[in-house]
């Protein structure tokens, strides 16, 4: 049973190291001082990837020792970041790790270090452990992944990114509405048709934005002005118009 738990740690650590490597390469953290630099990020990612693959293919003690030292060092660094630069995020999983460094991050590092120490004498390499997988190993791994998920703010960042890819509509007050869209909506509106013939010129006198509305002002032939209010919402082409005296 102890051997099964140890083998599970090897799989867990290999998976985490490979995930961290992938995240740093695909979603690099914003460049910053020290270890947050781009080159340093790539170097760390390559190191993590190498260790992850090595854990999968060999059970040599040197690989396990290197993994333990790496996680212990990472825990110490995250602890320092929590004290000195908590708002920077730890960058552990690239751009996914931009959350404030808190106790959870330090605890997560400490648990991984403990797992690496427990895996020092694991009988199998990762691939061999997978071949000889048991129900117990599956249960332990599921439990550890659940704890890992609870201690990882990166999970919500990852889900947010997937959600953002679906591009939810921003509220009309904040939505970027290009001028072309405004003119298209305006010129296909009944309000435009009503006033078009009386416009003194084709160019608007003024165009400005107030939250959910963009206002477009044209001079009329009779010295008055017409103000069109065009909705900036994604699915609302409402256009309103008001004629005002120039003095207003």
């Amino acid at each position: 049973m102890i051997a099964a738990v140890q083998n599970t740690q090897v799989l867990l650590l290999a998976g985490v190291l490979l995930a961290a490597c992938l995240a740093k390469l695909v979603l690099p953290a914003p460049a910053g001082p020290g270890l947050r630099g781009r080159r340093a990020g790539v170097a760390v990612a390559v190191g993590e990837g190498t260790l992850g693959v090595a854990l999968l293919v060999t059970s040599h003690l040197s690989v396990r020792l290197a993994t333990s030292v790496a996680f212990a060092a990472a825990t110490w660094i995250v602890g320092e970041l929590r004290t000195r630069r908590p708002d920077d995020g730890c960058g552990c999983f690239g751009a996914l790790s931009t959350h404030r460094v808190d106790r959870r991050s330090v605890l997560r590092g400490a648990l991984f270090t403990a797992a690496a120490l427990a895996a020092l004498t694991a009988p199998h390499a990762g691939v061999a452990a997978l071949r000889n997988g048991t129900l117990l190993m599956g249960c332990v791994l599921a439990l550890e992944l659940a704890v890992f998920g609870m201690l990882s703010p990166e999970l919500s960042s990852f889900l947010d990114r997937r959600r953002l890819r679906r591009r939810p509509d921003p509220p009309c007050e904040r939505r970027h509405s290009p001028l072309d869209e405004t003119y298209r909506r305006l010129r296909s509106s009944a309000a435009w048709t009503t006033h078009e013939a009386a416009l003194a010129g084709a160019e608007p006198l003024d165009v400005w934005r107030e939250g959910c509305w963009r206002f477009v002002v044209y001079a009329l032939d009779d010295e008055r002005e017409v103000v069109f209010a065009v909705s900036t919402a994604a699915r609302d082409a409402t256009v309103r118009a008001a004629v005002i005296a120039t003095d207003d």
Binding site: T182, R209, G211, R214
Partner: peptide
Amino acid sequence: PALDGEGDAGGCADAPPGCVPLPLLSLGS
């Protein structure tokens, strides 16, 4: 900090959106 970048509103096209959700306004608002 959240001026519209189109028309005569006076904003910058490359301005970051900021961490407070504010309505897009114009000079004179």
